[in-house]
Amino acid sequence: MDTFGIWVAAFLTLGIISFLYRDNPWYKVCESIFVGISAGYWFVTLFYDNILGLFWRGVTSPDPHYMLLVGAVLGFMMLLRLVPPIGWISRWPLAFVVGATAGLYIINYFSSNVMLQVQSTLAPLFSTKFGQPIFEASLYDTIGNLVIAGGTFTGLVYFFFSKEHKGVFGGAARIGIWTIMITFGASFGYTVMSRMSLLIGRMEFIFGDWLRLIR
């Protein structure tokens, strides 16, 4: 069965890679299989995990959680989107999701992405931590601390569009855009390397598992 599986996986892998030549029927078949299988995979998994596992077991347990019925009703309302005359009812569960996400994000993002990041940036420049003597940090760390503090501040200045980027403010914004461009470059390089490692994995499968040309 595994041998058959390897051949199926090789057929599908080569089908997707064939897109590099041009859009072709083999690629489209593999793409359609991917779409159908992905939809079906999540359809089944979420049924067992969330609907059967969370809702049904919760309601039918010896200590039933009847509040789960509210979630089920909201979920059912979401599915009514498929019935155009009463599709507007799906706005109710959508409003719940939007409201919950908004409420959750206000505090979560403010505490983790603003407060914690600011706290981490407000660190001693010339020592490794608070309480240590000045110039205790190495030159490497000192330059790094200056880059982090200056880069974060100037990066934020660049994102401040309520004031024209002129004079000292414009100079800071210019340093900010340099920092951000280096960040984008680093993120780009990082992404390329992760995609490359996926590609190497597929090539190992083709030439190793399937063709057995490499061991």
């Binding site: 409201g99 908004a102 206000i106 990041q117 880069g151 974060t152 993120s187």
Partner: peptide, 27 residues
């Protein structure tokens, strides 16, 4: 470790402030 961290922090703080203000507008 340094330049990327600084840039990411600036972007994260900017995005977070945008999310907080948008969430408030939604609520």
């Amino acid at each position: 470790g340094f330049i990327n961290s600084a840039g990411q922090r600036a972007i994260m703080i900017g995005i977070a402030l945008g999310i907080v203000s948008t969430s408030l507008r939604i609520i």
